[in-house]
Design a protein around this nucleic acid. Structure first.
Length: 275
DNA sequence: CAGCGTGTTGAGGA
DNA sequence: TTCCTCAACACGCT
């Protein structure tokens, strides 16, 4: 379920395992469905021989910058996993889609059960002009993100606040789980229309606060998320509403309700979060 | 066996 | 044109 904290955790772990500085010596494409704007040959030409120089994140996208001024952009979507391993795979290879063979006997492997993930290759100088990258809004960790930004971005929208927070072109990084947690923390009903929101500052603060805490805890492990083999997050211990249908609200003991908003399962406390 | 799901896109409707 | 909703993607789990 990688949302911003899980994606950031993946990046943090890749850095901790010293991915930066390694050179790509070969590429094995097992399932080419992952490749979106390059052929297998194109990917090989663009990456073999290049050194990995830096890693960063745009919204939920992982950006791998190379010494030849190319960037590999990976989006994990629902179930993607990007692990830095040794020669021997440390995960079920049934869902292995791609391998970057690296120096120092390391292999960067991409696994994806549902094969929804995407990989693009761009020239670094063109990266920010690519439509699907350019349209991604700032995330709640950005210094420019605050109540005023949020108000400006969403106040004229006519869809539920929950749907707005999930729209990556308005604010990036938030997914279904943290969205419910943020709205609970801010005491806002998920169906509230943006024009009825009184305190955008609280909403913005809670967004930043919750994502930061989740990064500190290496993300949330529910469904199948793992940031690395043998590495789970622990934020799930702090989930206040997500997945807690028919359990008591941690604040007021009212039963948590589940509804569908914009096609997504949505958990909230009918007492703390009123329309 | 049927239904559900963490994310995003694009088709179609208003 | 612009905004919004919802099915579809592919597979494992309950």
């Amino acid at each position: 379920m990688p949302e911003l904290p899980e994606v950031q955790t993946v990046i943090n772990l890749l850095k901790a395992k010293k991915l930066i500085g390694l050179r790509i010596s070969d590429v094995n494409v097992i399932k080419s469905k992952l490749l979106k704007n390059v052929s297998i040959l194109g990917l090989k030409k663009a990456t073999i021989g290049a050194k990995i120089t830096s890693l960063n994140r745009i919204g939920k996208n992982i950006i791998i910058n190379l010494s030849n001024k190319k960037s590999i952009v990976i989006h994990l979507r629902m179930e993607g996993k990007l692990f830095l391993e040794g020669i021997k795979p440390e995960w079920n290879t049934k869902h292995l889609m791609l391998e970057f063979i690296l120096t120092q006997h390391k292999v960067l492997r991409y696994y994806d059960t549902r094969m929804f993930g995407t990989l693009h290759v761009y020239d670094q100088k063109n990266l920010l002009n690519q439509l699907h990258i350019k349209k991604i809004a700032i995330d709640p960790l950005n210094v420019k993100f605050n109540g005023e930004y949020l108000k400006k971005a969403i106040t004229n929208k006519n869809k539920p606040i929950k749907t707005c927070l999930l729209d990556q072109t308005l604010v990036s990084g938030i997914g279904n789980i943290y969205c419910d947690e943020i709205l609970f923390a801010a005491k806002i009903h998920p169906l509230t229309k943006p024009k009825d929101i009184k305190n955008f500052n609280v909403l913005a603060q809670k967004s930043t606060e919750i994502l930061k805490k989740a990064i500190k805890l290496k993300g949330t492990t529910v469904f199948s998320y793992h940031s690395a083999p043998n590495t789970s997050g622990s934020f799930q211990k702090y989930l206040a509403v997500y997945g807690r249908t028919h359990q008591k609200c941690v604040r007021c003991k009212t039963m948590i309700k589940k509804i569908v908003v914009g096609g997504r399962g949505t958990y909230f406390c009918p007492n703390c979060q009123r329309l």
